[in-house]
Design a protein around this nucleic acid. Structure first.
Lengths: 230, 230
DNA sequence: AAATCAAAAACTGCATGCAATACTGCTGCA
DNA sequence: TGCAGCAGTATTGCATGCAGTTTTTGATTT
């Protein structure tokens, strides 16, 4: 079973067969997603070049790549900056990710192979044990696989990639989702409905269940920020 | 009412306030989408630089931008090439576009303002006249607006941009869709159902109607290629 | 003390050059 | 005649330098 959630950082250690530009794009992108480079930070080409011990050329090219993914904003003749995400945009991104996940669930219900259905069921059961033992870290990791299985089950790499990209992009804003008390069993119950619908081939139910699931995650997120802001 | 289907080519004539790189990315991208640069064509940096009378640097950066959109494929240490699209990928892209359009229709049914609903209805009625007069060119143009209204009505720029991008990307493969005999009135009838569902706020029906609509377009496409291949 | 303006510093956009890698065609051998 | 190895060429990846624009800073004025 091969599941690759993060696809840019493959071969991060081995430096051969990859251009400086690609490595820089991956590193700077990770720095942004991990919060090392905060939104609004100016990406000074000189500084970055010095920091990574390369010239400005690959830095410029890497920044342009990141701009296309939306991670940084390009302003002609002025410094590129790490893209700011307004609450309104965040809301839109969460909705979009929810819709994409729901669509993947729908397609999975329609076109998963029997083996894929069994894998999903098996993964869900494995997560049941993690809920029992209240293993939050394990559940988070297994949750990624659960969702990745549904992306893959859609048999549509375009939609799957879009969903993965958005999930990755929203990562920094979802970290605390499973810390809310009682979230683990609730999440597992929602997964139960999603899994059942997919395995039984009920496309509409899979769509609805997934939409409901991710909407609740979003609620959790919004609740947390509201608390933080207060 | 402002609808911008193509957003890269804004200010193509006026050369100020836009970097060479941006202009090049737009021009080369258009060349690819219009078929001037066929899939598989090698993008020689020297040749392109000479052709557009700039140095290799902006050409390289433009190519990297296009690579991020999927229009060209980057192979380290070897020439970038115009991305080839296999029939399997094309199928996936059509499915993805259909799902995105259907999702936008669903969201439109839920969240369009009364004014937006009226605009959609009005646009649909206008297209009725074009069907009567069998104005294919006019219908094609109006069809773009009809769909753009639904993208915008989703009130989700991420999903809308994804749909627009895919539609643009698939453009070269959909050209002949309205030439099939009887396609105009049939398309209009499908639009009728989509419009009715959205205006009346029936999200599920809007989703289903749009999915059906774009699937039929895809059938038309596949039929044409099969004919061509035979 | 705050605001304004000008000069300087900093930074981006682009051109060019060099080194390293990939490709092409040729020659020699089976 | 066909294939393998090799030299030459073409082409990419990256560094560096310069010009033009933006930003910053400091002085001057109100």
């Amino acid at each position: 079973m091969i599941i690759r959630v993060v696809n840019e950082t493959v071969e991060m250690t081995s430096s051969n067969k990859q251009t400086q530009t690609d490595k820089l794009a991956a590193e700077i992108g990770d720095a942004i997603l991990s919060g090392v480079l905060a939104p609004g930070t100016r990406l000074d080409e000189h500084r970055l070049a010095e920091q990574y011990a390369v010239s400005r050329t690959p830095v410029r090219e890497a920044i342009r790549s990141l701009a296309a993914t939306g991670l940084v904003e390009l302003r002609p003749r002025r410094s590129a900056v790490v893209a700011e995400i307004t609450p309104a945009q965040l809301e839109i991104m969460f909705v979009a990710m929810g819709e994409l996940e729901a669509t993947c669930a729908r397609l999975s219900a329609m076109s998963m192979t029997p083996i894929e259905r069994r894998r999903l069921q098996s993964q869900h059961e494995r997560m049941g044990a993690l809920v029992e033992s209240d293993d939050v870290a394990g559940f988070i990791e297994a949750n990624l696989i659960f969702h990745a299985l549904i992306y893959a089950g859609s048999h549509n790499s375009i939609l799957a990639d879009m969903a993965v990209g958005l999930r990755r992009r929203l990562g920094p804003y979802r970290r605390a989702q499973f810390r809310s008390p009682g979230r683990l069993p609730r999440s597992h119950a929602e997964h139960e409905r999603i899994m059942q619908a997919i395995v039984s081939g009920d496309a509409a139910a899979a769509h609805a269940a997934m939409l409901n699931h991710v909407s609740l995650v979003e609620d959790t997120f919004i609740g947390l920020t509201a608390t933080r802001a207060a």
